[in-house]
């Protein structure tokens, strides 16, 4: 027997089994909702895309890498939209996307918890938030909610009418790729 056979077999098994730990890839489906709200301002971001790899049984191998088109903000008021896109707030000409990349996903209670880097307005900060995943006939729905301090990301002037704490509500239906 060739002396390389068993090492090669071991390497083959290890390589093959590694693929079993790769989380399932999901495609973002229509009907997603990325909402934000505070005491005064509220609205949605209408364009959201990215790569989602998630396995309920193996959250550690899961990964989120998603972007929001900052210019797709819709507060329901034309003047507010224009103001939100201006350099005082999101400065969409300079920072066209809001980016979130996960670093760690763990099981937490009945749901999960993701830790990652959120980049808004050119400022990157670690953000951790809980989320749930509910299976549906076509795939599943991710739902999560968290709060960010807009001043941490230099969005808008500190103080003023709009609260510092902005609640983000996310609902993302996905289908299997």
């Amino acid at each position: 027997m060739n002396k390389y056979f068993y090492p090669a077999l071991a390497a083959l098994i290890l390589t093959g089994s590694a693929f079993t730990f790769v989380a399932t890839s999901w495609q973002i489906a229509d009907g997603y909702s990325i909402g934000f709200s505070s005491n005064d301002a509220g609205g949605v971001f209408k364009t959201f895309k990215g790569a989602i790899a998630f396995d309920e049984q193996n959250p550690a191998a899961s990964k989120f890498d998603v972007t929001i088109d900052a210019a797709s903000i819709n507060t329901g008021n034309g003047l507010q939209n224009k103001h939100a896109k201006s350099d005082e707030w999101f400065d969409v000409a300079k920072y066209p996307v809001i980016h979130y990349t996960s670093n760690k996903i763990v099981k937490a209670g009945s749901g999960y918890q993701v830790t990652g880097d959120l980049e808004i307005h050119g400022v990157k900060k670690p953000v951790t938030f809980p989320f749930t995943f509910q299976k549906t006939a076509k795939g599943g729905v991710f739902t999560g909610s968290f709060t960010v301090n807009r001043s941490d990301f230099h969005v808008g002037k500190p103080g003023g009418d709009v609260a510092e704490q902005i609640k983000i509500d996310i609902s993302v239906p996905v289908t299997k790729q």
């Binding site: 507060t75 939209n81 224009k82």
Partner: peptide, 17 residues
């Protein structure tokens, strides 16, 4: 109408006024 907030499901609120 300038200050009115439309439902966010409606596109192009800037055309409402």
């Amino acid at each position: 109408p300038i200050a009115y907030k439309l439902p966010t499901s409606l596109e192009t609120p800037e055309l409402f006024p």
